[in-house]
Amino acid sequence: MIDIFVCEDNYKQLNEIVSYINNYVLIENLDMELKLATSDPYRILNYLEKNDTEKSLYFLDIGLSSDIDGIELAKKIRKNDFDSKIVFITTHSEMVFLTFKYQIEALDYILKDFPDEIQGKVTRAIDLCNEQFQKKESKSEEYYQIKTGDQLKSVKISDILFFESSPVPHKVIVHLMNGQFEFYNTMKEIESENEKFFRCHKSYVVNVDNVESINRQTRKITMSDGEIIFSSVLGCRTLVKMKNNN
């Protein structure tokens, strides 16, 4: 069961969105329920304090007639309920796309400027939410958690290629299938955090699963995305053994 919450301070729009949600849930016979539709953000926060929610979907207006806005509300909800899906209802002029995406990791946003598209966007968000929760249940993917400043990032272990030490002390660069970023940690600590991580060189910890090939003469390791890193003599030998055992 997925709980749905709506917070919108314009009653007309609130009712409109609520009716779209109820209709869609009813017609498609989805395992979802509208728990709370309100114009007061604190009612949602109060509800969350008193009740446990397992899976939830929030539709939040950005400009609320309260001392907090939709983004603040979303931040508070996230603290309480890490896996929740959040959809923002906004106007073009209030739109802060990157904030939605990278600070709140919002599922989607609905623009009020195009009244004809609201219904379609609401149903699409419900579908997307369902899909994502189902995907998460079916796959028991292993995640590695990285703390960068304020945020906790979950990275799939299978996406991690290797960690590289930065010239700046205690800073490590993690190389992923689709990018790279820096965070604070030590190579020693990282190696001990997962059995698939192996320190093959003073400045590299590789994810053994993503090692494509090892050249023992040149001591070069080719990763599954084609990037080449170096290994120590001993590291090379151990790595070959580890690969053979797999």
């Binding site: 990157l98 904030t99 990278y102 304020d150």
Partner: peptide
């Protein structure tokens, strides 16, 4: 798209741009 997001402990400056469809990995 450029955005500055400031939270209590950090300021993030994000620059995102569309890329032509290619399979080039980031390290390259």
């Amino acid at each position: 798209q450029v955005g500055i997001i400031d939270v209590d402990t950090e300021i993030m400056i994000i620059v995102q741009n569309s890329v032509r469809d290619n399979e080039l990995p980031v390290w390259k």
